[in-house]
Design a binder for these strands. Structure first.
Lengths: 156, 156
DNA sequence: CGTCGATGATGTTTTCGACCAAAGCCGAGT
DNA sequence: ACTCGGCTTTGGTCGAAAACATCATCGACG
């Protein structure tokens, strides 16, 4: 299990929001009940999403949360990164401010640590697929026609 | 951080073994010292690798561990799966005995949970890259000419 | 002996989730 | 119109449980 329930619940929450009218905010209570998720926990997750400016909030009666942008404009990479606090398969691969991957074990000047290649590729694969998908892809589960990367039978 | 140090240390260990003569077992003590890793922890990891039949062991004086197969024959997917206990981005995507992905949330008969598509693709991307690489790819860090999936500048 | 092999103890960190007080917003009642 | 009360977010602390990383012990075996 490489992603925590933060990502799982958070994505579900976003999908839920993507399914309703953006003008009509949905309260966390409603989402928690409908999706069967713990309310108190969602409060934390949605806070991260708000800080990342992925959702808008409105308090008071008939308040709640709504998507900050159209579902087509929200990539899953943003969502997961906001929830999980960055996407890195391992400490070694932590993208710095400008996407550059730096390995702490790097003997600067000498040869890089050999395992870096592996994690860099894994990182690339994950980020790539995550960036290729938007919220709208999850709202209508119709398979995409082009560039479908759903993997065939792999036994692991 | 989606993989634990199990995967990191374990892969390092395997690379270490791949670099030496397979007929000459290396003791954990030597590896721990050379790689700067905690010996006691390595004992756990190497136990998993042995159960997965990825390494052979020889006890007694001048004993130690060695690769069970040639580096070209050992895919990183096997290594990571052995160390981490399976590869799944999330509980939802847990490959059963024969590679079939089953979602617990599946309302059987009804529509599948919409987030499944996302995690299935991520899972596929990870497993795919992991299966495309073998230990030998890490021994000689020479870049592969075909199918290089190293990702360009992505900011996440 | 030197090394593996199994098991269990331990301290730390992360997850997961509960709870609560403050503050903002809405609508109803006066 | 204005206030008041209830609904909701906001943000914080707190705690249990699990996972992680490590150490330690003891036996088996070559």
């Amino acid at each position: 299990m490489m992603f925590s329930t933060k990502a799982e619940y958070g994505v579900r929450l976003m999908v839920h929001l993507a399914r309703v009218d953006r003008e009509e905010p949905v309260s966390l209570t409603a989402i928690a009940a409908s999706e069967g998720l713990p309310l108190a926990y969602l409060e934390h997750l949605v806070a991260s999403l708000r800080r990342a400016e992925l959702v808008d909030s409105r308090r008071g009666a008939h308040g709640g949360y709504s998507l900050a942008r159209a579902p087509e404009e929200i990539t899953m990479a943003e969502v997961v990164a906001a929830l999980e606090g960055g996407i890195a398969p391992i400490e070694c691969i932590a993208a710095d401010s400008e996407g550059e991957v730096v390995c702490s074990r790097e003997t600067d000047g000498g040869e890089p640590c050999p395992t870096k290649l592996l994690w860099a590729r894994v990182h690339g694969a994950i980020v790539g697929t995550l960036e290729d998908m938007t919220l709208s892809d999850l709202v209508r589960p119709a398979p995409r026609t082009a560039g479908d990367t759903t993997q065939p039978k792999v036994t692991v």
